[in-house]
Design a protein around this nucleic acid. Sequence first.
DNA 1: TTGCTCCTCACGTCACGTGAGGTGGC
DNA 2: TTGCTCCTCACGTCACGTGAGGTGGC
Lengths: 278, 278
Amino acid sequence: MFSIGEFAGLGRMSVRMLRHYDAIGLLRPAHVDAASGYRFYTAAQLSRLNRIIALKDLGFTLQQVQVILDEKVDVTELRGMLRLRRAQLAEQLAADSTRLARVEARLRLIESEGHMNTEEVVLKHVPSIRIAELTAVAASYGPEDIGPTISPLYEQLIGRLEAAGVKMTGPPIAYYDPAPGDSAEAVTTHAAFPVAVEPGPDQDFAVVDLPAIETAATLIHRGSMDGADRPLQVVANWIDENGYRALGRGYAREVYLEVPPGDQANWVTEFQVPVVKA
Amino acid sequence: MFSIGEFAGLGRMSVRMLRHYDAIGLLRPAHVDAASGYRFYTAAQLSRLNRIIALKDLGFTLQQVQVILDEKVDVTELRGMLRLRRAQLAEQLAADSTRLARVEARLRLIESEGHMNTEEVVLKHVPSIRIAELTAVAASYGPEDIGPTISPLYEQLIGRLEAAGVKMTGPPIAYYDPAPGDSAEAVTTHAAFPVAVEPGPDQDFAVVDLPAIETAATLIHRGSMDGADRPLQVVANWIDENGYRALGRGYAREVYLEVPPGDQANWVTEFQVPVVKA
DNA sequence: TTGCTCCTCACGTCACGTGAGGTGGC
DNA sequence: TTGCTCCTCACGTCACGTGAGGTGGC
């Protein structure tokens, strides 16, 4: 018979842990003194304690340990639990090594630039959404060509939607495709609003379902779209540094979160670039 | 201005999380309606939210995120935090991959043997300890040779310790070395008790400090020492399966936790085999 | 009127660590 | 008498999830 302190020493546990295991019924002392409440353990109980430690080391919760030790799970169930644990551990390893890669990318950045960057790129899932849109071809993906192309599209689109009595259910969205034809630079520019109507024959705008973006590298941009180059560059660097690859030729989807009239300086835009792990 | 629900959608957060961030002062809404308590956020706040998400993704706690964002930690401090995080992540990756290896060893065992084993091998650190001991050479490490060699040693040792008025401060310990001389099989057998005295010239026993075992694979054995082969085999298998290597020629240190008089069937012994990662 | 969104408590999670306040035997 | 070990509460940890119970505008 060992006192709780001695037993804790033999099992390399804290006294508190042994009391805890007593409280949850995982390891009851072999004897408890009725008068003092002192707990006493036998050497033979060390093997149960070791089983507990071994299962805990595999990453099982105390509840699971208890079930495994007491309710006699059969071999099949135990195998299932082990496989689940294996899958969880593999997943966590993957997540942590991604995290580690991100931390290292940050460190490289801080070493090379000597300061911390303020913009933050974040990965998001973007769900699919129904939109009404008008399109036109711009000479290039540069803001100097996009702006003059897309502005009139939005004016027209707003007019037509109002005429048709269609409500816009969210902020304006823009996205881009390579334009068919000679120029490798030209892009098809889509000006869109989320809507909740069905496509119909009499509409003077297209109603389509924008596909979801499984994983998008996103960045919030504050200011005029003339300064869109820099945030796009930041996203591109991030994608590179963190071991991802841009999809769809790197065109960003744009969500105009805030477009107060007048000065574009107060605009707030989210860029969304579809990516996959490289 | 977005309601909390809209803002949560844009930032892919739960409403609860935004309320939590408000409560801890990490992200206060731009405006709170005095009458209703409704929270309102601006699009511009999305960039702070993204910074929060990005730092959380690196594995920082919300407290750390808050310090980084608000108290303007300088570059040196931030670099220090990132390096610490990197070290922590590396450590956790190592620990988890060890865990994963153990789970896989278990699965292999269950697949090959079709049942779960009941003995549990556990890694422990064994601290150094002062002992009084007597030694003798046994013909081999087998229990049939050890038993007759070590029993008389303990009888003598107990007598001599009592005669010298030296108290035993713990359970008996036995350990083994290869014996010098012709036989490759012969082992020096040490019968020992923990004591708290200094070595002296007039002692008819040796007082030495047993070194710590950095990492020991341990197993509790219940029953006669004649059946010691099996637990030792179990430990040896575990060491193999889990990617460790036995040190000191695989001799186990033995701690006799419970040695009731009479039948050895009720003995409880701990085997401790020093190991290192292979 | 029914839904929908928002609000404020406040408990629950997991495995203990850490006092606080007190007792019994050497 | 002083230390030492043991005891029982009970709060704190971390980042929210999840009701409970209630309100205001379409």
